[in-house]
Design a protein around this nucleic acid. Structure first.
Lengths: 122, 122
DNA sequence: CTGGATCCCTAGTGATACTG
DNA sequence: CAGTATCACTAGGGATCCAG
């Protein structure tokens, strides 16, 4: 049953909030983006080693999504064994500063949040 | 099977990326935070009307989480029928600017992303 | 090496009904 | 009004195996 009122906090496909959450809201995308920013150019296996406990499948899925969105550029070297490198696109680069301010906020406040959560009795 | 290497991109509980994603990475939290920022002080039903298609359950769950994290303050007025008001805490307020830069980025680039995604042939 | 394909399990979400 | 309880469904994610 749809509600009738529509405003900018609705979630049609053009909602900016949904749009940004679709890109960084999942479990791994933000980590991958920040890693690529830091390291610059990485092979599949290198990312896998840096991001502990990500599975090959999820790394593959995540990179595919980021590539489809134009945030990450994928370069295949036609050789055996195959070699594929990933790097941020300009668009991807442009997102990084905003992610970093978020991370900065998190670093500065995670202690407060943790404390609050411990005191919160349900 | 745990991998052995650990660095800052791992996801222990003190990872800032995980920390921030846990707060805004879900489907509704960011929308609620931005709405409370805009409107200032809202009752349960008012939030429900503004955020189209959220269910009572998810609104309840979302607000509970935000309250537990100390981002939202909940005030109960002991009367019949009950009246409960929600507003951002100082901590919640401090997060808003970073969310807005993200939203700004999304607004500015969602068209590019959309185009990229359409061209991406799997 | 870089993935794809498959199976499976759980966490998140939604619908509905109910309550103080 | 402001939730809770219950059920049921799905998408996200992990493990494992297979392939160019």
């Amino acid at each position: 049953m749809k509600k009738e009122i529509e405003n900018k906090y609705t979630e049609p496909s053009d909602c900016p909030v949904r749009n940004v959450l679709d890109r960084i809201g999942d479990k791994w995308s933000m980590l991958v983006l920040l890693l690529l920013e830091e390291k610059g150019l990485l092979r599949f296996n290198e990312i896998d080693k840096h991001i502990v406990s990500i599975s090959q499948k999820m790394l593959s899925v995540t990179l595919k999504g980021l590539e489809a969105d134009g945030l990450v550029k994928r370069t295949i070297y036609p050789q055996v064994p195959p070699k594929v490198e990933y790097e941020l696109t300009e668009l991807g680069q442009s997102l990084i500063p905003h992610l970093n301010t978020l991370v900065g906020w998190a670093k500065a406040n995670m202690q407060k949040i943790e404390t609050s959560r411990l005191q919160y009795q349900n």
